[in-house]
Design a protein around this nucleic acid. Structure first.
Length: 254
DNA sequence: ATGGCTAAGATGCTTAGA
Protein backbone atom coordinates (compact mmCIF):
# COMPACT_ATOMS: atom_id res chain seq x y z
CA UNK A 1 0.00 0.00 0.00
CA UNK A 2 1.18 3.51 -0.87
CA UNK A 3 0.02 6.56 1.06
CA UNK A 4 1.22 10.04 0.14
CA UNK A 5 0.89 13.64 1.23
CA UNK A 6 1.29 16.60 -1.13
CA UNK A 7 0.73 20.33 -0.73
CA UNK A 8 -0.15 21.13 -4.35
CA UNK A 9 -0.45 24.95 -4.01
CA UNK A 10 -3.73 25.16 -5.95
CA UNK A 11 -5.27 21.97 -7.26
CA UNK A 12 -6.69 23.94 -10.19
CA UNK A 13 -3.24 25.12 -11.26
CA UNK A 14 -1.72 21.71 -10.54
CA UNK A 15 -4.43 19.41 -11.91
CA UNK A 16 -2.49 18.17 -14.96
CA UNK A 17 0.50 17.34 -12.78
CA UNK A 18 -1.59 15.73 -10.06
CA UNK A 19 -3.48 13.55 -12.54
CA UNK A 20 -0.25 12.51 -14.25
CA UNK A 21 1.37 11.74 -10.90
CA UNK A 22 -1.60 9.66 -9.75
CA UNK A 23 -1.46 7.67 -12.99
CA UNK A 24 2.28 7.07 -12.81
CA UNK A 25 2.65 6.47 -9.06
CA UNK A 26 -0.77 4.91 -8.36
CA UNK A 27 -0.85 5.68 -4.62
CA UNK A 28 -3.73 4.05 -2.75
CA UNK A 29 -4.34 7.26 -0.80
CA UNK A 30 -3.19 10.82 -1.51
CA UNK A 31 -3.64 13.47 1.17
CA UNK A 32 -3.76 16.90 -0.46
CA UNK A 33 -3.30 20.37 1.01
CA UNK A 34 -3.81 23.89 -0.35
CA UNK A 35 -6.35 22.94 -2.98
CA UNK A 36 -7.32 26.63 -3.02
CA UNK A 37 -10.72 25.84 -4.47
CA UNK A 38 -14.30 25.73 -3.31
CA UNK A 39 -16.08 22.38 -3.06
CA UNK A 40 -18.07 23.25 -6.19
CA UNK A 41 -14.84 23.64 -8.20
CA UNK A 42 -13.18 20.47 -6.91
CA UNK A 43 -12.28 18.21 -9.88
CA UNK A 44 -14.00 15.07 -8.57
CA UNK A 45 -14.99 13.89 -12.07
CA UNK A 46 -11.46 14.11 -13.45
CA UNK A 47 -10.23 12.05 -10.50
CA UNK A 48 -13.04 9.53 -10.88
CA UNK A 49 -12.02 9.20 -14.52
CA UNK A 50 -8.71 7.66 -13.46
CA UNK A 51 -10.20 5.47 -10.76
CA UNK A 52 -10.04 7.65 -7.66
CA UNK A 53 -12.75 8.55 -5.19
CA UNK A 54 -12.31 11.80 -3.33
CA UNK A 55 -13.49 14.01 -0.51
CA UNK A 56 -12.79 17.72 -0.27
CA UNK A 57 -13.11 20.48 2.31
CA UNK A 58 -12.54 23.92 0.83
CA UNK A 59 -14.21 27.29 0.52
CA UNK A 60 -12.33 29.17 -2.14
CA UNK A 61 -9.18 31.17 -2.46
CA UNK A 62 -7.07 29.85 0.39
CA UNK A 63 -6.46 26.62 2.27
CA UNK A 64 -8.52 23.58 1.29
CA UNK A 65 -7.73 19.90 1.95
CA UNK A 66 -8.64 16.72 0.13
CA UNK A 67 -8.38 12.97 0.37
CA UNK A 68 -8.04 11.04 -2.88
CA UNK A 69 -8.36 7.27 -2.60
CA UNK A 70 -8.72 4.14 -4.68
CA UNK A 71 -9.37 1.99 -1.59
CA UNK A 72 -12.64 3.63 -0.55
CA UNK A 73 -13.65 6.70 1.47
CA UNK A 74 -16.14 6.63 4.34
CA UNK A 75 -16.99 8.44 7.57
CA UNK A 76 -15.67 11.78 6.32
CA UNK A 77 -15.07 14.47 8.97
CA UNK A 78 -14.51 18.06 7.86
CA UNK A 79 -12.71 20.74 9.84
CA UNK A 80 -11.45 21.27 13.37
CA UNK A 81 -13.52 23.08 15.95
CA UNK A 82 -11.31 26.14 16.21
CA UNK A 83 -11.84 29.55 14.58
CA UNK A 84 -9.18 31.62 12.84
CA UNK A 85 -8.52 35.16 14.13
CA UNK A 86 -11.20 36.29 11.68
CA UNK A 87 -13.69 34.43 13.85
CA UNK A 88 -14.41 32.01 11.04
CA UNK A 89 -13.25 28.40 10.72
CA UNK A 90 -10.81 27.59 7.92
CA UNK A 91 -10.81 24.38 5.84
CA UNK A 92 -7.58 22.81 7.06
CA UNK A 93 -8.58 19.36 8.28
CA UNK A 94 -10.26 16.39 6.62
CA UNK A 95 -10.33 12.79 7.82
CA UNK A 96 -11.87 9.57 6.57
CA UNK A 97 -11.70 5.79 6.65
CA UNK A 98 -9.70 4.51 3.67
CA UNK A 99 -8.58 0.94 3.09
CA UNK A 100 -9.16 -0.16 6.68
CA UNK A 101 -7.44 2.74 8.37
CA UNK A 102 -8.25 6.27 9.47
CA UNK A 103 -6.42 8.94 7.48
CA UNK A 104 -6.31 12.71 7.93
CA UNK A 105 -5.13 15.48 5.62
CA UNK A 106 -3.98 18.52 7.59
CA UNK A 107 -2.84 21.99 6.62
CA UNK A 108 -1.49 23.64 9.75
CA UNK A 109 -1.75 27.47 9.80
CA UNK A 110 1.42 29.24 8.70
CA UNK A 111 1.65 31.52 11.72
CA UNK A 112 2.86 34.50 9.68
CA UNK A 113 5.14 36.07 12.31
CA UNK A 114 6.20 35.25 15.84
CA UNK A 115 3.75 36.94 18.20
CA UNK A 116 1.17 37.50 15.47
CA UNK A 117 -2.47 36.58 16.17
CA UNK A 118 -2.05 33.89 13.53
CA UNK A 119 0.94 32.50 15.44
CA UNK A 120 -1.26 31.90 18.51
CA UNK A 121 -3.87 30.42 16.19
CA UNK A 122 -1.26 28.03 14.82
CA UNK A 123 -0.37 26.79 18.31
CA UNK A 124 -4.03 26.46 19.32
CA UNK A 125 -4.82 24.65 16.08
CA UNK A 126 -2.10 22.09 16.77
CA UNK A 127 -3.44 21.60 20.29
CA UNK A 128 -6.91 20.92 18.90
CA UNK A 129 -5.43 18.54 16.33
CA UNK A 130 -3.87 16.65 19.24
CA UNK A 131 -7.29 16.19 20.85
CA UNK A 132 -8.76 14.80 17.62
CA UNK A 133 -5.75 12.53 17.10
CA UNK A 134 -6.08 11.15 20.61
CA UNK A 135 -9.72 10.24 19.95
CA UNK A 136 -9.01 8.67 16.54
CA UNK A 137 -6.12 6.63 17.95
CA UNK A 138 -8.53 4.75 20.21
CA UNK A 139 -10.33 3.38 17.14
CA UNK A 140 -7.49 1.72 15.20
CA UNK A 141 -4.77 2.47 12.71
CA UNK A 142 -4.26 6.15 11.91
CA UNK A 143 -2.16 8.14 9.45
CA UNK A 144 -2.05 11.93 9.78
CA UNK A 145 -0.32 13.54 6.83
CA UNK A 146 0.07 17.06 5.65
CA UNK A 147 1.83 20.36 5.65
CA UNK A 148 2.59 21.02 9.32
CA UNK A 149 4.43 24.29 8.73
CA UNK A 150 6.89 23.27 11.43
CA UNK A 151 10.40 21.94 10.86
CA UNK A 152 10.70 19.42 13.71
CA UNK A 153 14.44 19.93 14.30
CA UNK A 154 17.31 22.14 13.13
CA UNK A 155 18.32 19.30 10.79
CA UNK A 156 15.06 19.86 8.95
CA UNK A 157 16.06 23.25 7.53
CA UNK A 158 18.91 24.03 5.15
CA UNK A 159 20.56 26.46 7.56
CA UNK A 160 19.26 27.06 11.10
CA UNK A 161 21.03 30.44 11.18
CA UNK A 162 18.93 31.60 8.24
CA UNK A 163 15.78 31.05 10.30
CA UNK A 164 16.68 33.20 13.27
CA UNK A 165 13.56 35.06 14.29
CA UNK A 166 11.43 33.17 11.79
CA UNK A 167 8.40 30.97 12.27
CA UNK A 168 8.47 27.19 11.64
CA UNK A 169 11.50 26.61 13.87
CA UNK A 170 10.57 28.11 17.25
CA UNK A 171 10.51 26.13 20.48
CA UNK A 172 6.78 26.86 20.85
CA UNK A 173 5.91 25.47 17.43
CA UNK A 174 8.14 22.43 17.86
CA UNK A 175 6.66 21.70 21.29
CA UNK A 176 3.13 22.06 19.89
CA UNK A 177 4.01 19.56 17.16
CA UNK A 178 5.58 17.17 19.65
CA UNK A 179 2.42 17.37 21.76
CA UNK A 180 0.45 16.04 18.78
CA UNK A 181 3.00 13.27 18.18
CA UNK A 182 3.06 12.40 21.89
CA UNK A 183 -0.62 11.44 21.71
CA UNK A 184 0.73 8.22 20.19
CA UNK A 185 2.02 8.83 16.67
CA UNK A 186 5.36 8.18 14.99
CA UNK A 187 6.96 10.62 12.55
CA UNK A 188 7.81 8.17 9.78
CA UNK A 189 10.92 10.17 8.89
CA UNK A 190 12.41 9.34 12.28
CA UNK A 191 12.44 5.57 11.67
CA UNK A 192 14.86 4.41 9.01
CA UNK A 193 16.27 6.86 6.54
CA UNK A 194 15.29 10.52 6.69
CA UNK A 195 13.55 11.33 3.37
CA UNK A 196 14.89 14.90 3.31
CA UNK A 197 13.26 18.20 2.49
CA UNK A 198 9.70 18.50 1.19
CA UNK A 199 9.47 22.25 0.53
CA UNK A 200 11.66 24.69 -1.37
CA UNK A 201 10.80 28.38 -1.74
CA UNK A 202 10.00 29.43 -5.31
CA UNK A 203 12.37 32.38 -5.02
CA UNK A 204 16.08 32.64 -5.62
CA UNK A 205 16.46 29.19 -7.11
CA UNK A 206 16.14 27.55 -3.71
CA UNK A 207 15.28 24.14 -5.18
CA UNK A 208 18.22 24.16 -7.56
CA UNK A 209 20.48 25.17 -4.68
CA UNK A 210 19.14 22.51 -2.34
CA UNK A 211 17.81 25.04 0.17
CA UNK A 212 14.70 23.37 1.52
CA UNK A 213 12.77 22.45 4.63
CA UNK A 214 11.11 19.28 5.93
CA UNK A 215 7.71 20.59 6.94
CA UNK A 216 5.44 17.98 5.35
CA UNK A 217 5.05 14.96 7.57
CA UNK A 218 3.44 11.55 7.65
CA UNK A 219 2.59 10.62 11.24
CA UNK A 220 1.26 7.15 11.96
CA UNK A 221 0.03 4.95 14.77
CA UNK A 222 2.77 2.57 15.98
CA UNK A 223 1.30 -0.53 14.31
CA UNK A 224 1.09 1.35 11.02
CA UNK A 225 4.61 2.69 11.41
CA UNK A 226 5.87 -0.86 11.90
CA UNK A 227 4.45 -1.74 8.46
CA UNK A 228 6.48 0.95 6.65
CA UNK A 229 8.98 -0.51 4.20
CA UNK A 230 10.01 2.71 2.44
CA UNK A 231 9.59 6.48 2.73
CA UNK A 232 10.65 9.01 0.11
CA UNK A 233 10.12 12.49 -1.30
CA UNK A 234 9.31 12.56 -5.01
CA UNK A 235 11.62 15.49 -5.82
CA UNK A 236 10.91 15.16 -9.56
CA UNK A 237 7.58 16.80 -8.83
CA UNK A 238 9.34 19.94 -7.57
CA UNK A 239 11.15 20.28 -10.91
CA UNK A 240 9.96 21.04 -14.43
CA UNK A 241 7.05 23.17 -15.61
CA UNK A 242 4.78 24.84 -13.06
CA UNK A 243 5.61 22.78 -9.98
CA UNK A 244 4.13 23.23 -6.53
CA UNK A 245 6.66 24.53 -4.02
CA UNK A 246 6.20 21.23 -2.15
CA UNK A 247 6.98 17.71 -3.36
CA UNK A 248 4.97 14.56 -2.51
CA UNK A 249 6.02 12.57 0.55
CA UNK A 250 5.27 8.89 -0.02
CA UNK A 251 5.21 5.91 2.33
CA UNK A 252 5.06 2.27 1.30
CA UNK A 253 3.33 -0.02 3.80
CA UNK A 254 3.33 -3.81 3.96
C1' DA B 1 20.18 46.42 -2.80
C1' DT B 2 17.45 43.18 2.73
C1' DG B 3 14.60 41.88 -2.97
C1' DG B 4 14.32 38.16 -5.85
C1' DC B 5 8.35 33.57 -6.82
C1' DT B 6 3.55 31.89 -7.48
C1' DA B 7 -1.53 31.84 -7.23
C1' DA B 8 -6.00 33.86 -7.07
C1' DG B 9 -9.72 37.47 -6.84
C1' DA B 10 -11.01 41.12 -9.21
C1' DT B 11 -6.39 43.01 -11.66
C1' DG B 12 -3.13 46.08 -13.55
C1' DC B 13 -3.16 45.61 -7.53
C1' DT B 14 -3.50 43.06 -2.95
C1' DT B 15 -3.13 39.10 0.19
C1' DA B 16 -0.89 35.04 1.44
C1' DG B 17 2.35 31.66 1.55
C1' DA B 18 7.02 29.95 4.44
Amino acid sequence: MLIASWNVNSLTARLPRVLAWLESSRPDVLLVQETKCANAAFPAEALAGIGYQSAHHGDGRWNGVAIISRVGIAEVVRGLNIPAPTGLPEPRFLSADCGGMRVASVYVPNGREIGHLYFSYKLAWLQELGEVVARDLTKGELVVGGDFNVAPTDQDVFDPQAFTGATHVTVEEREALQTVIAKGLVDLATIGQNPGFTFWDYRQGFFRRGLGMRIDLLLASPVTASRVTKLWVDRQERAGERPSDHAPLVAELE
